[in-house]
Amino acid sequence: MYMHYDTKMYKVFTVFNIIFVTLIGMLCILPMIHILAVAFSGKAAATANLINLWPVNFTADAFVETLTNRNFSHALAISVGRTLLGLAFFLFFTILTAYPLSKSEQDFKGKNIYLWFFVFTMFFSGGLVPTYILMTRLKLINSIFALVLPGALNVWSAILLINFFKGIPKELEESATIDGAGRFMTLLKIFLPLSLPSLATLSLFTMVGHWNSWFDGMIYNTKMENYPLATLLQIIVVQQDFSKITADPHDLADISNRTVKAAQIFIGAVPILLVYPFLQKYFVSGIVVGAVKG
């Protein structure tokens, strides 16, 4: 049955495949290594762009400066907070929206009306100004909820989840019903455990989205102390026009300090990278294959 695994051509293919995949993997990791090398380098070498993958004039000053910067650690805490809170809101609202909408029209009268009601918002939104006015009137300015509530229900994700729920064999649900489970128990004991792969994927999208989002952090906050990390990094990374500011040489060198920028970018990326390995184990498909016999 597995005869073709032994052929010579297959082995050659495997070797090249591994080399190819390794190269792609390298492409992904090299920028991170470069950033890390810059962060550990001397300032002059960084200004001259002399650093490739290994630090020049090794120093940890940039990391010390970043980690002892209270603004930075505060922004990091806000980002972690909004990501976790955002994830909780997202899961709660998206699951509770998707579950009923995955039922048939017989089980849920008027389901299609609700569905179109949600889908409409995917294509038409109020736009920036009305959303801003809404946040102002809700008194959410300077509140972490201004960052979390607008994305609490993501219709696109809900539709994905609806389709995933629909794909779960009806027999499993029936078996639970026979054992006396109600709607919520079926959701908790049957649907959610079986949907872990898609929930993990959607959670990852949501967390990365929250982690990277900077514009809302800027417009819904009146004080920089409330900025999440992405907004802070955006300010740091965007190139200043040096002919447009009063030139105090000390400030110029500070503002353009590439090593500190690199350290901040690196530290800013690490927490979200740490999420991946923990979610990896859920990225396995075919869980329901073989659940229904006969």
């Binding site: 920036l128 100004v129 801003y132 006015i133 102002t136 800027m218 417009i219 009146t222 004080k223 920089m224 907004t231 955006q234 300010i235 965007v238 200043q240 500011i245």
Partner: peptide, 19 residues
């Protein structure tokens, strides 16, 4: 307050006027 980059101040003042 806003950052100095990306026309942030302009964006904010325009939003304020609209709202």
């Amino acid at each position: 307050t806003t950052p100095t980059t990306d026309n942030a101040f302009y964006t904010k003042i325009m939003l304020s006027i609209s709202a």
